[in-house]
Design a protein around this nucleic acid. Structure first.
Length: 143
RNA sequence: ACAGAGGGCCGGUCUGUCGCUUUUAGAAAUAAAGGAGGAAAGUCCGGGCAACACAGAGCACCAUACUUCCUAACGGGAAGCUGUGUUACAACAGAGUGAACGUAACAGAAAACAACCGCCGGAUGUAAAUCCGGUAAGGGUGAAAAGGAGGGGUAAGAGCCCACCGCUCCGAUGGUGACACCGGAGGUCAGUACGUCUUAUGGGUUGCAAGACCAUGUACACCGACGCAUGUAGGGCUGCUCGCCCGAUGUCGGGGGGUAGGUCGCUAGAGCUGCCGGGUGACCGGUAGUCGAGAUAAAUGACAGACGCUUAACCGGAUUUUCCGGAAAAGUACAGAACCCGGCUUACAGGCUCACUGUUUUA
RNA sequence: CGGGGUGUAGCACAGUUGGUAGCGCGCUACGUUCGGGACGUAGAGGUCGGAAGUUCGAGUCUUCUCACCCCGA
């Protein structure tokens, strides 16, 4: 995985309906406009991994074209900037599940989305650090 | 040339870097090839396909409705007919209803066996006027007022009579037909709109989250059939016995509960393209070639650069409008497959093309 | 993706054969009260989601369109 840092295969995406339901029920969320991030961490089994899902509500963007466009932008910016967060997770020995939910009712251009995604990932890194050091971590999942 | 109205088609291209998905090859790393639309949309119709239901006939309900054709089918399309409409081309509408019934607000005398005003005649009266009768030509109301508008006729009028038009019926001709056109007759006690209604045709229900299979695995309450049994263990009626009744544990089916993972359905089809032939046309027949997405939290992308196209300030040249060359800047649409087809409808930057109508000018 | 439903006053709702759009709560004014509430009287407030069509006339019938809600392994 370290050999090809910009890949984004299915093993890094959250594909199971039940795992997504679990994430939204038990995960904690914070705002990093223009996205809301839902996160959940648990102890890594063999090596740390991060599984991500992108969500764009139909109520915000009515046309399928716009929803696809936003999801592709989110995927692309995450794919190109995920490396530092993965290193943080490996340092703490945890795996992460997270969801990005789009908030604004319009499409935003690539440069701004990339900037906001970097900010969101920095916040996520701080969140991981905060929850691993004060011991509130390994709440639910052992899987 | 200007104006108007219509049909058909296209709807970006290339390079680099980083990715996604399917197939094939490979032990793997990886490599190669493919990867959104005319509307993929709305889900308004029609089919295929699937599961379930189903003797036959009638009624009811829903949809459609000029004619002939096209089609797997259609509420779609083509060509025509009639009417409305336009300067014209367009465009729009379209079964029957003298079989019967219902409704027609407000206004108006009256909304269907019509006398309010008016007109005419008669009676009473000096007169004004009142009463009786005739009259649908005129007035006013209304969306709609009892064939039209002329002449004759009459007290005044009226298809009361006459010619023309319209209407209804009959006949001839042309057309597959809607219908057109011609001739004759009737003599208008046949109004209008909508609905009920009539006639003909079609319609079983639900939809790929249909449905089939595999894996994981929970809990069987209840019901039916079969099997076992001298109807055993056990239970109910009872204080107890007898007696009577129910009857677990097996197999199959129903029902209930659980699982949220995978495979199939899943893309070669009323397919697409070229040519030839038939038809006014929708379309049909023949022949050759061709394979063009199959995802499943859901791929088909992101960024950078160059070009193309449109509008073009501005600059240069010929220089009256105008033409030629260059060009900053801005814009480059509507929109994303989810079982598949045939239509309809709606959205759409810009461009190409075909045929048409009117006016003006030139030959 | 497939199927079904609802839009009427500020809010919740009525409105059958097409013929002047209503009820309840709320709002405004007046009365009543020392004042308020309650009560009584009067009144205002409507592109009937939007656009076409049928009709003399559409909340109602037809077509298109917009928004919201529900159901389906």
């Amino acid at each position: 995985m370290a050999d090809h840092p910009f890949k984004f295969p299915k093993t890094e995406r959250l594909c199971s309906e039940s795992q997504i339901a679990e994430l939204f029920q038990d995960g904690e969320s914070f705002m990093s406009y223009p996205v809301r991030v839902v996160m959940q961490i648990y102890k890594a089994v063999e090596h740390s991994e991060i599984r991500v899902v992108m969500s764009v509500p139909k109520k915000k963007l009515k046309h399928a074209v716009d929803r696809n466009r936003v999801k592709r932008l989110l995927r692309e910016t995450y794919r190109l900037n995920k490396q530092t967060l993965l290193e943080q997770a490996m340092a703490q020995g945890v795996s992460v599940r997270m969801a990005f939910i789009w908030i604004p009712p319009e499409v935003i251009d690539y440069q701004r989305v990339e900037k906001k995604m970097k900010e969101a990932l920095v916040k996520a890194g701080k969140w991981i650090l905060g929850h691993t050091t004060d011991g509130t971590v390994y709440t639910k999942i052992e899987n």
